[in-house]
Design a protein around this nucleic acid. Structure first.
Lengths: 168, 168
DNA sequence: CTAAACTTTCAAAAATAAATGAAAGTTATT
DNA sequence: AATAACTTTCATTTATTTTTGAAAGTTTAG
């Protein structure tokens, strides 16, 4: 396979994967590009490589920086900004997990808690069942969120490493 | 809070959560509805409650069954089909994890593997860096996918339970 | 201070995804 | 085998998300 073809295939694939995991396609593609770039890239470079507009590039680079997985870098004597991706993949996973927990799970948990304890006076069967089920769901999502949090601490901790080993 | 209000809030929230995790909004809402229904619901019921069309209900119920998280149920003497949700939440998590791995991660892994070993002859710096990075990414995604798989075996296994406990 | 170099914003356009509903398909009943 | 009860399909419409690009904003250098 030619290098250019492989590169393109990789960027497309990473983009598709990202878009299925809540990161928009262009954002994931920019990230892919930065991951494999041996040198920091300018906004021009990104626009050129992905054939996207200036506005699009600007917005998605900003978003990547908000997620904490892309950084600005300045070059000696150069006026413009360059960008590099977080290259430590464990760190990347931690950042993504934290962001998604904060933006999506935490707010949902708040509502689940609210509704699960909101109809306690109503004693119809339907209402009782509702309270039961939503309580279970709250506990479950809370557990999942905690796991996500704890999983991000794994890499530094002996127990985690042990478990990983056993889990093959 | 009134029961109806709580119910509506719950359905909306579950729908939003789902849509951020790769399950379409209506699909997640139907699932929510079935989760809290004390009795199996017919397609009519679902259409009525969510104010959606017959086609929409049919397609999304089918999708939920493909995911293995909703089942058909037949009632004595009734001609029409009723639906119930998988109520075991651990089972739900397993099913979702399996489906997403199969549909999204596995195909991506295939491409990653392909491109990471595709440009080995090319010896420019850029190509070398590309191979290095994509190899790392492949390993990383593979590891993540394995974790997802193993996590689904946790609930039945003593070590898993222990770890869960320690993780609080 | 001001012009040049560069970045961000945002209303409008384009692309994508999801929903509708009527027609076609299926299955059970008489 | 005809009809009624119900479900699925899919071309079209509608809603949502993403992208564009030109104008406004910012920063640096002279």
């Amino acid at each position: 396979m030619e290098f250019k073809e492989a590169k393109n295939k990789f960027v497309q694939t990473w983009g598709a994967l990202g878009s299925q995991w809540g990161i928009n396609k262009t954002m994931a593609q920019i990230h892919a590009l930065l991951m494999i770039a041996p040198e920091p890239l300018s906004m021009e470079d990104v626009m050129e490589e992905l054939q996207i507009s200036r506005g699009n590039a600007s917005m998605n680079l900003r978003a990547l920086m908000d997620w904490g997985i892309v950084y600005k870098e300045f070059k000696q004597g150069e006026r413009k900004e360059f960008f590099i991706a977080e290259k430590d993949l464990d760190e990347l996973a931690v950042k993504i997990a934290q962001e998604r927990s904060k933006r999506e799970i935490k707010p949902a948990l708040k509502v689940l808690k609210e509704v699960s304890s909101a109809v306690k006076e109503n004693k119809t069967d339907e209402a009782k069942h509702f309270t039961e089920q939503t309580t279970k769901l709250y506990d479950f999502v809370l557990k999942a969120d905690n796991m996500l949090e704890k999983a991000t601490e794994f890499k530094d901790n002996w127990l985690g490493k042990l478990v990983m080993k056993i889990m093959k």
